[in-house]
Nucleic acid binder design. Sequence first.
DNA 1: TCCAATATCGTACGGCGTACGGAGACGACG
DNA 2: CGTCGTCTCCGTACGCCGTACGATATTGGA
Lengths: 266, 266
Amino acid sequence: MLRIMAKRSDKPDDRHYGGRGDPVRSMELLWRDRSAPARGRGPKPGLTVERIVTAAIDLADAEGLPALSMRRVAQRLGVGTMSLYTYVPGKAELIDVMFDTVCGEQDPIPWAEDWRERLELIARSTLGMYRRHPWMLSVMANSRPPLGPNSIANYDRDLRAVDGLGLTDLEMDSVVTMLAVYVQGAANTVVEAASTEPATGVSDQEWWETYGPLLAKVFDAEKYPTAARIGAVAGETYQSAYDPDHGFEFGLTRLLDGVAALIASR
Amino acid sequence: MLRIMAKRSDKPDDRHYGGRGDPVRSMELLWRDRSAPARGRGPKPGLTVERIVTAAIDLADAEGLPALSMRRVAQRLGVGTMSLYTYVPGKAELIDVMFDTVCGEQDPIPWAEDWRERLELIARSTLGMYRRHPWMLSVMANSRPPLGPNSIANYDRDLRAVDGLGLTDLEMDSVVTMLAVYVQGAANTVVEAASTEPATGVSDQEWWETYGPLLAKVFDAEKYPTAARIGAVAGETYQSAYDPDHGFEFGLTRLLDGVAALIASR
DNA sequence: TCCAATATCGTACGGCGTACGGAGACGACG
DNA sequence: CGTCGTCTCCGTACGCCGTACGATATTGGA
């Protein structure tokens, strides 16, 4: 009756860029039994899902999601491309497992007395995760996430941080989600800023020195006096168009102030 | 001395997914003189940059960024693929122009008396833009943005909304950026949620009905009581894992409460 | 009229995900 | 010990991608 992605899409690779895989296959992989080898009749497996996932994560960390290809992963493992398909149904499901694996590698976050500090620690830890694995930003799914053991553990940890503050269940969920969404957006900026210089070989200052004059030629400061004023101040202060780390902390403070107001109103 | 992307990267297409183009070429396109045809000697141009950009935007709207290819755009215009390169240096620069074009199509936002209402209107208008053009989320650049006329106009508009409230220039910039970052993150969720059903042919409810039992088999509710409780409540309330529109407004309220606290402290 | 300048675009290269099916390795059973 | 069923490994092929290159067609100016 109810089929969920029972068929692969007709066109190759038209699932979202860091796509969701077939839920059933993904769940089987995510919650797979890691203990029993349970060898059967054929030849010994030369690989494991773990080794493939690790190699894929290393590759994505080093060269980004666009460089993540089945060929490249197989190359890293010294096997033929198609051998991977013995262990993993396809690229999309592999990415689902990569996602949950990374979710599980965060250090345990110390339990602070203050809810505010707890949320700050979580936010910064998550930011650190995105820093180490920028491709996670392209894979993140907030609706219909691949519900692996580690991402669920994180969800539980986040909820416990706002439990017992007088919020309703729904408000707790909303606060936690809002924080995750904000961190995701801010991390996008932070990560992009960090990755641009190595990728282009041009520092922010150099970029600004070239772009600025280019812009000055065409930009009419009289038409947009506010943008001209603030843009100049921000550019001088940050030596670039924007300082993402400052932005992250600034936004986090405002956001938690807003949460404080909600809690106070209860 | 100072070269900014003077050469194309050696590998094809390793610029970011919705990549930045060569700044000089992009700026020439973005601020191009739209008036003068200034015909010279050769055959009449059969296309315009505008037509190409429009076709590209239509394609990206309809089928997403992964489907945006030079071949497909050319197909839509009834020309050979390589003809596009007469008008546009490459795909990356085309995307830069698409970006700024979309930035310019927002309706003018009415000027509200209350700063808070002004920011709400901007946030919702921006969300609407992301709804109409989900691919903009994959193209958004917060550091080193392609500074076209329209994105600058929007920046100015945003700043004017928080001018004269007693904030410093830097704080104004931070507030505006924070709002943009939040909307970006939240829009990610909203847009993803809206696009998942048509893309997969599975409604949220159907998905939940299949996924839920699948999860129930492996999820240990006693290990994560908080997640189990809240997840169940949220699932029942939203008939899915999450209601993104509610999340957007909830987060926006908290965020503006935080801004209000900042303004009050001045 | 003829040429310089411009527009058009076919071909080619090396990449991608993965369907398909053959080949070889191994354990269980006769 | 042979044989068969099962499993692993993976070469090949298809149709996509961006775009460098260079041939060809079209036009206006001299």
